[in-house]
Design a protein around this nucleic acid. Structure first.
Lengths: 224, 224
DNA sequence: CGGCATCCTCTTTGATACTG
DNA sequence: CAGTATCAAAGAGGATGCCG
């Protein structure tokens, strides 16, 4: 990337990670840990292979990630974040927090991977009935299933599954996300193709309080 | 910008603010509030005028900023962030936090504006002698002077000046920043062209603890 | 299969000059 | 002051080929 040539911390940061695709590569490495080239390519649908190679080299150059031959059993190279790269976690999380509201749009045709919802769901879901026994919810929206472990006032979210979840949500990511965050009513989502198996109370336990009013997106900030 | 086409909060955020120059425009509006076109151009040295126009239109489109005719005395349009745009503050701040370490490099020839140091200095400076009476330090490193108001355990930093500061630092931004953060010794910075007027104790009052060892930039993160 | 390299087209950018 | 217009260079995207 061409440098902005500004003695400014934001500009210097963007000199390093401001290129197209760069922060999404960091997202993948943050979410999955050490990855093979093909894992990264799968986690970055739409990237051209030459671009992925270029970015990986630039990030290695910049000390954000390192490339290592995997230990004997595996015959491949692994890419993983350095300490400096891990320090980007808060940057990526703040971007995710800010971008989460766009997940409420339909956004049909988008590529999807289950792990992309881990952060947005963690930001919005709560265990609203901490005194009830724990429950698990399985979400099947894309590639690998996502598991919500609800109990003791907290909601844990990770990729995986358990033998007998208390509820199971299956369908398009937008429907799943809309129902879990309470923006869509279960009946409407069902009409749109979502499948839900289990007690609807399980769902209500994690949904956040309904918002009172949509903020006006073009509202002007009051000065000061 | 071409969309990443991913149902992911980070990708959606970057669809909106991932373009080159976009977050730097937001930086300027966050730091200065409502701006005229020429203010922005001055705060974004290196941007092509057509790009600035393009970005402003895209950001207006996206509901990040609004364009308004200024009230009667002034005959110009003002650009200011919407509420949605202000919500980018944490994103920009985290980028600044992460990028601050690059300010320790020489980086000669970079453009500079005083307000760009407000955040990085706030992150590093402390009032280490809260019981002493307050002091002010004036910093002349670029366009407008920067004022450090030190007292009661806190350091306030803003653009401006006072009639009789307790200390005055004048010189290249890299030298000023290096001395204030304690990375450069005053004598060395003076030899490199920095001017300092005032009691050196005033300087020591705000400098952070010296770091014990540089982190290895290419160190690999320990898994888990 | 994993990990690229090359070629080609299309879009974005950067630099500069010009205008109401 | 607040932009347009123009044009060359760089970068992104897509297809395909290569090699252990």
């Amino acid at each position: 990337m061409r440098s902005y040539g500004q003695y400014c911390a934001v500009a210097k940061a963007l000199d390093v990670v401001g290129d197209r695709w760069t922060l999404l590569i960091v997202r993948e490495l943050l979410a999955r840990g050490a990855c093979r080239y093909t894992d990264l390519r799968d986690g970055l649908p739409g990237i051209a292979t030459n671009l992925l190679v270029d970015r990986l080299r630039e990030l290695e150059q910049a000390g954000i990630l390192s490339r290592e031959a995997a230990p004997p059993p595996i015959a491949t190279t692994l890419f993983q974040l350095t300490v400096r790269g891990q320090e980007l976690r808060l940057v990526v999380e703040e971007l995710a927090r800010w971008g989460t509201s766009y997940l409420d749009d339909p956004g049909a045709g988008d590529a999807f991977r289950g792990r992309w919802l881990v952060l947005p769901l963690q930001l919005r879901l709560r265990d609203r009935q901490p005194d009830l026994p724990p429950v698990t919810i399985e979400v099947r929206a894309g590639d690998d299933p996502l598991l919500l472990e609800v109990g003791g006032g907290a909601v844990g979210i990770r990729q995986g599954s358990v033998p007998d979840p208390d509820a199971m949500l299956t369908g398009a990511p937008q429907l799943v996300f809309g129902v879990l965050t309470g923006r869509l009513r279960l009946a409407d989502a069902r009409a749109a193709g979502l499948q839900y198996v289990g007690d609807p109370e399980v769902l209500r336990r994690v949904q956040p309080e309904p918002l009172r009013a949509e903020a006006d997106g073009h509202q002007v900030a009051t000065p000061k």
